[in-house]
Write a protein that binds this DNA or RNA. Structure first.
Lengths: 115, 115
DNA sequence: CTGATACTGAAGCATTCACTTAAGTATCAA
DNA sequence: TTGATACTTAAGTGAATGCTTCAGTATCAG
């Protein structure tokens, strides 16, 4: 279908793969080359580069090449966006649950209040 | 390959689909039936149920059936886990960047310090 | 009992995904 | 210049994903 993907879609999709999260984990401890990223992973470097492209397209990782070495680092802003999305939903749910608790408490027979 | 998926994998995968995030968004505003969930979505109810199963398997949504109506709600705990993962990586990156900034500042010629 | 409602499950299908291998292209070191 | 290093790209493959349709089942309302 080939349609436009908004940033949040790309970020969540990028993070949905365990290998890519391992790469982000590694990069969150500091910049690394593609080889360094690939070293602990049980797959070809080619596959790692493909994952890297997805992370970059999502804005989660940024990289620059100097000589023959490409150095990668995490871009915190893209992570923030995903984090915020989850946080907002979670807080919304928790607020609902609080209101429910208050409601249940207020509807309780008087003598049972303030457990 | 069919291998064990740990909770975080399932949660991130569940959230990687835009339709499922819309469902979570809707449910974060309060519980809903399957029909209510399906109503704004441009697909069959069958498809919605399939998405629902993925969200439930990931622990993001919980549901119970009373009579012929299944009522769904968000389980905040699973959201927390994903949120925490992102938060920890992001903070790690930001700490690294801070240390870098301090380093660069300390290595700067004296007269340029404290911009 | 009868029809409408609210799902539920199975099968099929096109597309996307996560790889692989193989054949590149730069860059660096000696 | 020659070889090794560090990617890079293209093509192919099998499995997973996101749907569809169709044929159920269970519940409720009259």
């Amino acid at each position: 279908m080939l349609q436009y993907q908004e940033p949040l879609d790309l970020a969540f999709q990028a993070l949905s793969d365990p290998t890519r999260r391992r790469m982000v984990e590694r990069l969150s401890r500091g910049p690394a080359s593609v080889s360094e990223l690939a070293e602990p992973l049980p797959m070809s470097m080619s596959a790692v580069v493909q994952h890297l492209k997805i992370l970059e397209a999502a804005g989660v990782v940024r990289s620059e090449k100097v000589g023959r070495v490409r150095t990668c680092r995490v871009e915190p802003a893209a992570l923030s966006a995903a984090e915020r999305w989850i946080n907002e939903r979670r807080r919304s749910v928790e607020r609902s649950l609080d209101r429910l608790a208050v409601f249940l408490d207020e509807t309780k027979p008087e003598e049972e209040k303030t457990k």
